[in-house]
């Protein structure tokens, strides 16, 4: 079953008097449980495609389906609901809420979903342990390293057990050791929780982890390959 289906997506931006093509008739299908990397140089359209899949940005034309939901037909409120319940986001700059501790950052999404306090506390504890942040629950983002902050962001993204995680340059601000640890974590979550990962990156180390590698340039998909031996497979 397909987790994401994009058909003929087009998106342009105006920059001054210049029209820039973000997506140029992009069509793609991603299976549930897949681990996909979107790669390409800056301006190739990978972040635009990721934003369109996550309902953060609307395409000028084309269709996007996430699970059973036609994302391109949703209004602001239902889009927010879909992001809240079905999608987890990991950003390049971590984007944690600075006034909340690691545990509160993770619980925040669950509270917005209306989950009871006991459940929130229990799950946030478990998930922070799973991403290797046991004992750091009460630290605020400023008291954590970049890698630790990104782990909190990952915990926040997966705590509500989304079907899909969209990650935009998740390793861009991390050193190679931390980046490797993060990618191992992604693979583990993909394998153990069957979460679909779509990662936009131009980091070749990250691409090595992908089961499927999609290359983009100038808003178009220029290659789409399945990789037989991704770097890390967790047993």
């Amino acid at each position: 079953m397909s987790s994401i289906v994009c058909k003929d997506l087009c998106k342009t931006f105006q920059q001054g008097e210049e029209i820039i093509t973000g997506l140029d008739h992009v069509s793609i299908e991603i299976e549930a449980g897949d681990f996909v990397c979107l790669s390409g140089p800056s301006g190739s359209g990978k972040t635009t495609l990721l934003n369109a899949m996550g309902g953060l940005d609307t395409p000028d034309s084309g269709q996007i389906q996430v699970g059973d939901t036609r994302v391109d037909q949703l209004g602001k409120g239902p889009l927010a609901d879909m992001r809240l319940h079905k999608i987890g986001f990991v950003f390049q700059a971590y984007n944690l809420i600075p006034v909340l501790t690691a545990r509160e950052n993770v619980e925040f999404v669950m509270q917005v979903r209306g989950e009871p306090a006991q459940e929130r506390s229990h799950r946030s504890h478990d998930i922070l342990k799973e991403v290797g942040l046991e004992g750091m629950e009460d630290r605020r983002p400023a008291q954590l390293s970049g890698g630790q902050q990104q782990r909190v962001a990952v915990a926040r993204a997966i705590v509500s057990q989304p079907a899909l995680v969209l990650a935009d340059e998740p390793t861009a601000n991390l050193d190679s050791v931390t980046a490797t640890q993060l990618m191992d974590l992604f693979v583990e979550l993909n394998q153990h929780h069957n979460i679909t990962f779509v990662i936009a990156t131009h980091d070749t180390r990250v691409m090595a982890y992908a089961k499927r590698l999609i290359k983009m340039r100038d808003g178009k998909i220029i290659s789409d390959e399945k990789q037989q031996h991704p770097s890390t497979v967790v047993s």
Partner: peptide, 14 residues
């Protein structure tokens, strides 16, 4: 603004 944008991206309504 950025922080509010992130929260909206996570699914928090205005």
């Amino acid at each position: 603004t950025r922080e509010f944008g992130v929260m909206m991206a996570l699914g928090v309504k205005p």
